[in-house]
Design a protein around this nucleic acid. Structure first.
Ligand SMILES: [Mn+2]
Ligand SMILES: [Mn+2]
Ligand SMILES: [Mn+2]
Ligand SMILES: [Mn+2]
Lengths: 242, 242
DNA sequence: ATCTAAAATTAGTCGAAGCTAAAATAATAA
DNA sequence: TTATTATTTTAGCTTCGACTAATTTTAGAT
């Protein structure tokens, strides 16, 4: 299905290139490269682990993505998204996060269930669906995990949060987002009310094992091992008066 | 992804068969066979035309569906759904019709846009999604075109409607459903308020060209050529007192 | 500078799902 | 009954996106 035609008109040469909607596989690779690399370059192994496919499959796909002008890639050098690749990736990220929001807020999904369903739906919905859904949801800026939702044009709010484990003991912080990778992690965090927006006081960051102890607004204390604390991203907050 | 395991335990033999979710292609073939055949048998050409694929592709898929115990099929004899095939088809039909309802009632889709989007989404949503959506929608019995929505168990309301062209002149009829095949048809019917639930008086069914003339509740008169009148299904209604 | 281990690539294979062209079968009309 | 046409099947190819096993390259440690 041809989505649009981009005519690249350089020095009189007019070869108009057909841009077709990326397949689910191609889309997931683009997202994985984006997640693994930010602006930089993603290694074969990184992507293989993220997508649970063999490294050989990734090498193969990197070459195909290069053919499609979605990445720059030289053997043994990893892949980085082109402008086109990045915009395709962010289009999927936008869909994913809007869908998660809908599932949680309107269909009664649990916090940890939404990711898997969105991972499939993001490839099936149209741009028209996506924008109508955004309208229906009231154009939210963040998804349930706190991740910012890219605009239709691919702009993404800057993220200046940092892992809870790197906070200063004695600081007040607010949870900005939580990693949506592991359902076990989400399960635990959600069960203890450690969700985006929550205000915390950092009591201790123990050097030996990295366990972080925080107190929440209700006076409840939580001790988080480093696998948990690495999944919670916070921003400093002025000490609340109360 | 394995959805469930069915253990067929006949005469001590216990070979448990894995039933995996049908691919989008397999699912669309099952639906096409169901639509083309009702209870009977679907021909290669029927299905090829419905799905816009070559007859050779259909022959190939018929053989594969037989391997999977989804159809009964003998060469040159056409294919008919097994119990298993029928239940898979109806599961997709349920999803399709619920999704159409959601798109129309909550996302502001037009009557004629919903079909295409639902045709893709039906393969991406889970059973869990489907039932939560049904709950969200208030468990509707019919989709926007008037088609009955199968239950999760695969029960389907009997349809005793008939094409408008076969009605008796002078009869009162109520629109039960409209065919969702052609967007042009839907466009016209919707634009004239000829939607499921609408009460009509049949003024004339002209023998020469099959044009049907009806008057609606607002006293408006509509003349429908046979391609339109074949897309409208009605049931007789007692003459309204007014 | 050399050795070793990790990472990446190549080569070859597979299944799903499509296609075209040619051959076979069934259905219809003369 | 035979000839013609429509339908269906077969054979052979193609693309996508996986895989394993073998090889090559890079990076890290001695
Ligand atoms: Mn995905
Ligand atoms: Mn998320
Ligand atoms: Mn479909
Ligand atoms: Mn419908």
């Amino acid at each position: 299905m041809i989505i649009t035609k981009v005519s690249s008109n350089i020095l009189g040469m007019n070869d108009s290139v057909e841009i077709r909607a990326p397949s689910a596989s191609v889309g997931d690779y683009l997202k994985a490269i984006w997640e693994a690399s930010g602006e930089g370059t993603a290694s074969t192994k990184d992507v293989a682990v993220r997508l649970s496919v063999s490294p050989a499959s990734v090498t193969n796909m990197f070459a195909r993505l290069r053919e499609m002008d979605l990445v720059e890639y030289e053997r043994y050098r990893g892949a980085s998204l082109t402008e086109l690749g990045r915009s395709q990736a962010l289009r999927l990220v936008r869909r994913h996060r809007l869908i998660e929001t809908f599932l949680l807020e309107h269909l009664g999904y649990d916090w940890q269930e939404v990711h898997e369903e969105a991972e499939r739906l993001e490839h099936a919905v149209s741009d028209g669906f996506t924008e109508r859904l955004a309208e229906f949801l009231g154009h939210p800026g963040r998804d349930p995990h706190g991740d910012p939702i890219p605009t239709p044009e691919g702009a993404l709010e800057a993220d200046d949060s940092s892992p809870l484990g790197e906070a200063e003991p004695g600081a007040w912080v607010r949870i900005y987002k939580v990693s949506d990778e592991s359902t076990g992690t989400l399960d635990h965090l959600g069960g203890h009310g450690l969700v985006p927006g929550r205000l915390l006081y950092v009591e201790e960051i123990r050097v030996v094992d990295g366990v972080v102890t925080v107190r929440d607004e209700d006076g409840e204390t939580h001790a988080l091992g480093d696998s948990l604390s690495r999944s919670v991203f916070v921003r400093n907050e002025p000490r609340p008066r109360s």
